[in-house]
């Protein structure tokens, strides 16, 4: 009965998503098996070329290294600060200060970046990421902590649990949902570090900060669309599996 209304309300969105994302993605998959110019079917050739491409290997390595360093750091730093802040009344001003980098356009800070991160290396990239994303991580952790039922903590205290045991066995298990959210959003935002990396160092930065985003952009600019489509399918498939696994893990 409400089926009709569901489709009326969601219709424009589904059509738009279909036309602008899903259908062309099918085209990308098709192209990943073809040559650019003559549109001949070449099987897995493009994939082979991507896998044997040294720049691609470097970009994957750097991106994995960046993600594996920056996200755990961000998640932990946010948690530690949130656990302390949760005990303090009236944290509005503090939250504003930490959230502010989110409002600062990259273009505005980029000149400051150039002044201080003239090394343009891996560490400054991680620092920039933490700087920008600490605020929302904090807000999410605080929301998660505020949602922990007080009775649970009280009960543990009555049973004689000290602060640390209370944290480990009562609070952290309650924060599993927040952890999932924070990891997913931090991951999503980790790709946007390309803005800083690109604006500070251009299309061909130092080797250690040459990311997947750079190689995607460079192949696009150079119209190497065969390799680009194969790489798009590979990275897209990887992300799909990653998101679904996270989603499954979290629901259990």
């Amino acid at each position: 009965m409400y089926k009709k209304w569901f489709f009326i309300f969601i219709g424009p969105s589904v059509v738009g998503v279909g036309v602008f994302v899903l259908l062309p993605f099918a085209d990308v998959v098709k192209r990943s098996f073809m040559t650019v110019m003559s549109q001949e079917f070449v099987g897995l050739d493009n994939y082979r070329r991507v896998f044997s491409n040294q720049a691609f290997a470097l970009a994957v390595k750097n991106t994995v290294r960046f993600t594996a360093t920056a996200i755990p750091l961000l998640v932990l730093a946010g948690l530690v600060i949130a656990l302390v802040l949760a005990k303090i009344n009236d944290t509005r001003v503090i939250k504003s200060l930490y959230l502010f980098p989110m409002a600062m356009p990259t273009a505005t800070v980029v000149i400051v970046w150039r002044m201080f991160f003239y090394r343009q290396d891996f560490d400054s990239l991680v620092a920039g990421y933490l700087w920008k994303n600490l605020g929302y991580t904090l807000v999410l952790w605080l929301a998660g902590i505020a949602a922990i039922p007080n009775e649970l903590v009280e009960a543990a205290r009555v049973d004689g649990a000290r602060w640390f045991r209370c944290l480990l066995y009562v609070k952290l298990p309650c924060l599993k949902g927040s952890l999932y959210t924070i990891v997913v959003l931090s991951f999503l935002n980790s790709f946007k570090i390309y803005r800083e990396a690109y604006l500070v160092a251009g299309s061909y930065p130092k080797e250690e900060i040459y990311l997947l985003q750079h190689i995607f952009n460079n192949w696009y600019v150079n119209l190497e669309l065969d390799k680009l489509s194969a790489a798009t399918v590979l990275v897209g498939a990887f992300l799909l599996v990653f998101i679904l696994v996270l989603n499954r893990l979290w629901k259990v």
Binding site: V17, L212, G236, I243
Partner: peptide, 24 residues
Amino acid sequence: MLFLVYVVLMLLPFQVTMLSSYIV
């Protein structure tokens, strides 16, 4: 199922959808 599709699309970085957008 549709919602999951939306979540996945929300999480894909620009670089992965760039070529699709370019084609359209």
